[in-house]
Write a protein that binds this DNA or RNA. Sequence first.
RNA 1: GGCCCCAUCGUCUAGCCCGGUCUAGGACACCACCCUUUCACGGUGGGGACAGGGGUUCGAAUCCCCUUGGGGUCACCA
Length: 387
Amino acid sequence: MRFRTPDGPITIKDEILGEATLPAGEVDDFVIRKADGFPTYHFAVVVDDELMGVTHVLRAQEHFNNTAKHIVLQDALGFRRPTYGHLPLIFNPDGSKMSKRDKDKVLRKTVTDRKLAEPPAGTVDAARFTAWLGDKNTQLDYEEANRLANALDVALPEINVDDFRRSGYLPEVVCNFLALNGWSPGENREKFDNAFLTQAFDLSRVVKTPAKFDRVKLLSFNCDAITGMSREDFVRRAKSHGETYHAEFMRKLTPTQFESLAGASHERSKTDMFRGNRFLVLADDAFVYDAKAAEKNLRGAEPNGVSHLRALRALLAEVKAWEPAALEAAIKAYADAHTEGQLGKVAQPLRVAVSGGTVSPPIFDTLSILGRDSSLARIDRAIKQFG
RNA sequence: GGCCCCAUCGUCUAGCCCGGUCUAGGACACCACCCUUUCACGGUGGGGACAGGGGUUCGAAUCCCCUUGGGGUCACCA
């Protein structure tokens, strides 16, 4: 069933875009009731808004032209007209619209590029995989997408609010940053909390242009917010985040180990500290050595990293109290005697040996958290593998 | 393609409505230097924009027109 659109131009008043008039004949008669008896979105939204007493409709600019349909419907039904505001769209860096379908886009492209005819085992049902591959409108659900991404070893972009939360973005930072895409309070102010936002937000300061979503800047905001927290707050929130999203990780650390890790990670955390420190909870023979890091820090001309590790291994086995201060004293003494005090020369080989890479919390904390047995086992493994 | 909307640094934006205070401000990113016993943080400095062309005006980023460019929308989806 269609609605007969009245003749004549339709003027849309918008708090953000101003006034725009669509010439007569621009809006075709449109369906308000589908063959299955259900009302279409256009009809339902107009009726619903009236019944709910909605006063303001704030939605994305892609709805701007639809507003004309809603207005003629409201007039025909004798409904009140809410105030409209069409907010700018949010884009990806490449200028495409940021969309919930972007994860599927990444996966579909990877699958196509690699010419995979079948889904990797244990990811997605084969029939579903084929249907998904052939239809750009089909979306994998959260678990399916993650399993497939894992199997293909590709990173999925954060899109949904929960994706950001899961990744370790603070809710208040996400609100702050989102508000800045399309709006600003002026006066060179861009860091604020929700209380400020509620009192300062004003449609008249919303911009008309689409914004490219700058993940790097979001990350910087998040890092600042984390650094700005008290140590207690950080540990508390990290713990709660870990329990929700990294239960396995949390189970493998004692409360003391966790506190050490959190304390050592606070100042360097941009998001959460779980993904980057996975080596802490993997078995001593299970984490992977980064080839470049090992080449640079363990091999090379004598005395190289491995030769230092051999000496350090013997030395560390003798350390009485396995805690940061004692480890620091022992390792520093070694550096003074053998590398002209250059700690980096011994710290980096150690770091690669126990973590697999060149980035970790401070080395003394790292060793301390790992414990004597794991640390020595990992050093042995590195010596064996790269010596 | 028709219709509608938009146009300031790489990006998010301030300034525009009410022309002069703008040799255009901030933030993220980038570059350099400093700090540093890993990675990072931090500090200092630097490069970087009014899309183009016409008007109006004593004077235009700010007002008007055109061009170019970008976007949205044209579903029995929401």
